[in-house]
């Protein structure tokens, strides 16, 4: 089930993925691949299937057809080792989802200690390191409710990083934040990209997608409608993408 991917193999690949919620066909034969170190932005209208596609990568949704390979795991198969998959994949959500009963440090050390068996002292060092990465060292002992939305989201990113994932998924991570807090979260993601992290992000921040993404996948009605380098946002070839970027604000 799990082969060691050769360096040339993509970290994430979807081939002809289909997914329905009841009678509603959400993914209608979606294919794309993400190479090591690549940043891929999934864009599209609400309901176009981009979030579902992202969630399928971490198997929060089971697909009805097609093939998904993530870090060598055959995610579409029922016998996929979910815990192994999720050690390789980090996911950050729109609503942060920090654990409210734990301090930021405990939020971060929980999974490394429980899943990987990292010693407590080592895990605490790790927590300091990842919090420094997101600029929140001083919040080590704070509880989530004491943090602003932007800080909570940065802490959630740090929590994911502590598991040292091979690929990070971002599901509209700035949609709940005002522009100022959005900027501080985006700076963290930019730094991750600069450090070479492989990332797939669903985003409505077109300016950000243009600045950071190596490749854009524009989804429309459950299909990959247009894909290409970030430049397709400024010179789209399909009328749908033209209309989509025309309605958004293309700040850089």
């Amino acid at each position: 089930m799990q082969q060691n991917p050769s360096p040339s193999e993509p970290i994430v690949s979807l081939r002809d993925v289909k997914k329905s919620f009841g009678p509603l066909l959400v993914l209608d034969g979606v294919s794309f691949a993400v190479q090591r170190g690549e940043v891929l932005a999934l864009i599209g209208r609400s309901g176009s299937g981009k979030s579902t596609a992202l969630r399928c990568i971490d198997r929060f949704e089971k697909v009805d057809g097609g093939e998904i390979v993530v870090c060598g795991h055959r995610v579409d198969r029922p016998d996929v080792n979910l815990r192994a998959l999720r050690q390789d994949v980090g996911i950050v959500f729109q609503s942060y989802n920090l654990f409210p009963h734990l301090t930021i440090e405990q939020n971060i050390t929980l999974a490394p200690c429980a899943v990987k068996g990292v010693a407590t002292a080592q895990a605490k060092d790790l927590a300091r390191k990842v919090l420094a990465q997101v600029g929140l060292e001083e919040k080590l002992h704070a509880y989530p409710e004491q943090l602003s939305g932007g800080q909570q989201q940065r802490a959630a990113i740090a929590r994911s990083l502590a598991m040292q994932p091979k690929v990070m998924l971002f599901d509209e991570v700035t949609s709940a934040l005002d522009p100022e807090l959005t900027a501080e979260v985006l700076r963290v993601i930019e730094q991750l990209a600069a450090d070479g992290m492989t990332m797939v992000m669903v985003t409505h921040e077109m300016g950000f997608a243009k600045g950071i993404a190596d490749r854009i996948v524009f989804m429309h009605r459950g299909k990959v409608h247009e894909t290409g380098p970030a430049s397709i946002l400024t010179s789209p070839t399909t009328p749908e993408l033209t209309q989509f970027v025309g309605t958004g604000n293309l700040k850089s």
Binding site: R86, L98, F99, V115, S160
Partner: peptide
């Protein structure tokens, strides 16, 4: 989901 995503 967050706990699942962390491989717990």
């Amino acid at each position: 989901e967050a706990a699942e995503g962390l491989a717990l």
